[in-house]
Write a protein that binds this DNA or RNA. Sequence first.
DNA 1: TGGTTTGATTTGTGATCACACTTGCTTTGA
DNA 2: TCAAAGCAAGTGTGATCACAAATCAAACCA
Lengths: 245, 245
Amino acid sequence: MQKAAIERNNETIAAQLTPVGRETVQDRVYSELRRALIGGLFEPSQVLTIRGLADALVTSTMPVREALGRLITEKALEALPNRSVRVPPITLERIDDLLRARSLIEGEAIALAATRMNPRQIASVEAMLGEWDEMRALKHKKDIDREATLNQSFHFEIYRCCGSAVLIPMIESLWLQSGPCIRVAIYAFSDAGEVDTAHYHRSIVAALARQDAQAAREALVADISRPFAFLRDKLQSASKEGLRA
Amino acid sequence: MQKAAIERNNETIAAQLTPVGRETVQDRVYSELRRALIGGLFEPSQVLTIRGLADALVTSTMPVREALGRLITEKALEALPNRSVRVPPITLERIDDLLRARSLIEGEAIALAATRMNPRQIASVEAMLGEWDEMRALKHKKDIDREATLNQSFHFEIYRCCGSAVLIPMIESLWLQSGPCIRVAIYAFSDAGEVDTAHYHRSIVAALARQDAQAAREALVADISRPFAFLRDKLQSASKEGLRA
DNA sequence: TGGTTTGATTTGTGATCACACTTGCTTTGA
DNA sequence: TCAAAGCAAGTGTGATCACAAATCAAACCA
């Protein structure tokens, strides 16, 4: 077979095959734990063990311990002096601290995005708005997970447009840290009246559409402040009616 | 021996002994690599191997690979598709990106610190100013390392006063990322005229002393902008005179 | 009965090994 | 002479083992 023919043949094959990728076990464990953390599947103060997770994920301890180490360095988990690791507990100071950091950094990211998003990108996030309404309309019981996922996609779709390779990992770290807290608030939300978050998202999109960075920032801060404020009240009243260890 | 007596004896001993701590090998490796990275001991684009570092640090590969994994997640190092790891290369976009993030977050941290620092803390950082002048006076050749260390202490002494357990790790991550870049600039500084950075530090301390958050933020941004601007010019002129791989 | 001690189990840490993939060089064949 | 195949050294990944520290529980003594 001549060289040209082989070349052409390879190209034909390449066009039909999709790259298989080479994700390591460690990467999968890490992604899975991230997902669980952001989704709030672990409770604050819950202790995690390497062997326990390894069994649950059906791997050996090695990939798990490395994934845990990574999560500890980004403050998504906490290393106790006992060497055991737990998801960080909720405190009032931590809630305020996280909200301030998120407002600052995500606010900056969306302000940057507002000046950079092209019509196509804006249309893309606008489409997610519709998806949101759609989901809200049929009111499944799995709403909460779905809502959280969709909410995350919505925000990061915007942040990705800020064009900063430095800010985005920081935002991911912040979501990782506030995930377990937020979930508590979300559950309470769906019990309480729950003004629709879609309203907030709509005003974010509106601000982005007219490239109003300041308005986008303010709308975003209003959006992310809600669950934190809710959680804050909940925590304060809980500690008032009787403090327990 | 009675219980009370034993108790008292233990307390006496405890007062004289300093806690030995229980740092793992992995922690030491991690700290050492951090120090090297912030100090700019590794060059941008340099490739690091697990076994190579393990030999250099006289340990086995295990602690090194876990430390490398942690550094990769905080973007202090970069994982190539080959699975080898290197210190991230310098690009113009990355420089601007890092400076923007640092101005935003360190600016916020110092603004918070300005409103919270007590006279004792202010006196503490003011004392470092004197130490700086002292060092500058005798002009060793080891100036650069010493300067870098002192500069780091100065900044983090202030940041620690911001009272945010969320912002500080982010700042550490940013220093880790800009370390290799900055070092390049520092070297060039000491060749060039080098207006003294002490001047900038003095105006930072002055702003903190009168609790002027806005002035402190501006003085800080001016301080950290200098090496970045310097590096930026250097890079631009280098790419202008001929681009090489 | 209450507090202490002792022992077994669990857990994290580090070392070592086996395996697969990459890389660079040598060898081979046209 | 040159390109492709093959080989060898080096590298990251994951599994397993050994060990020390922590935890928990039962047994023990006062």
